[in-house]
Design a protein around this nucleic acid. Structure first.
Length: 258
DNA sequence: ATGACGGTGTGGCACCGA
């Protein structure tokens, strides 16, 4: 089975591209971030016509996450248990697969703006909350995938300018320690289980022809639990949608389990 | 470099993203 993550930066704008992508890439589940719309504006009908159920945690203007799946998701949890948050950033659900149940945790991590800012402090607290909750989720659901827009580069391979961007947002030691703390719960970065093209990124700024110059970051990740790791067959970034008209600044990342 | 681009909600711009 295939599971993908994509920060669409407004589902209202990107719905046609999502439908096109699903036609070309009929994954079993697609996790979306930055819907930028409330649940009452969510295109349930169009996605159902494409063969997908939707579990949605919407928010007007900012944030908003959803899990699209071929089979209906169950035991849906919205946001982080034990962490009070005004923003719609996390949706978790269980999928029933031929190999048993699989827990999906789809997250839109906090951006953090600038190290030292209030938003950065919020990012650190949010990461603490996520980790503490995830420990329980993993205990309850050994077969688990955590995926989404992490807004963290893992190491120098994940950034077009490791020296110039050192200790800037998405590159700080503190953020990377938080990422490592998630790994230490027993998770593995599926992308790095395989040999990958040099300078593989999942996001490029809209400005300065960043995509054309491949000045990007890898900040969209798929982490798998120890029980899932032996099943991982591939993990790929699909750059093609970044060439669309009115593209999202992020592209999909897909993991194949078998 | 207080910049760039793009989305949203608003209202003739400000805020946010990464």
């Amino acid at each position: 089975m295939k599971i993908a993550t994509w920060n669409v930066n407004s589902l209202a704008v990107r719905l046609p591209q999502v439908l096109d992508w699903l036609t070309a890439n009929p994954v079993d589940a697609l996790c979306l971030q930055e819907l930028k719309l409330s649940e009452d504006k969510f295109p349930f009908k169009e996605l159902e016509a494409a063969g997908y159920h939707s579990a949605v945690f919407g928010q007007k203007t900012y944030n908003g996450v959803a899990i699209l799946s071929r089979t209906a998701a169950r035991d849906v949890v919205k946001n982080i248990n034990g962490f009070s948050d005004e923003q719609s950033r996390v949706i978790a659900a269980t999928l029933d697969t031929p190999d048993g149940e699989l827990r999906i945790v789809n997250a839109y991590f906090v951006n953090g703006q600038t190290p030292g800012s209030e938003k950065f402090e919020y990012k650190m607290k949010w990461l603490d909350g996520l980790r503490n909750w995830l420990r329980d989720e993993l205990a309850a659901h050994p077969r688990l995938v955590l995926l989404g827009d992490f807004n963290i580069t893992v190491d120098d391979r994940d950034t077009y300018d490791p020296e110039g961007l050192r200790e800037t947002i998405h590159h700080t030691t503190e953020e990377r320690q938080h990422f490592q703390a998630l790994i230490d719960l027993g998770l593995t970065d599926a992308f790095r289980m395989f040999e990958q093209p040099e300078k593989s990124y999942s996001w490029w700024d809209y400005r300065e022809f960043a995509f054309r110059r491949n000045r990007g970051l890898r900040i969209d990740h798929i982490l798998v639990s120890q029980a899932v790791k032996p099943m991982v067959k591939s993990c790929v970034i699909d750059k093609l949608p970044r060439k669309n008209e009115r593209p999202s600044d992020h592209v999909p990342v897909t993991v194949e389990l078998g």
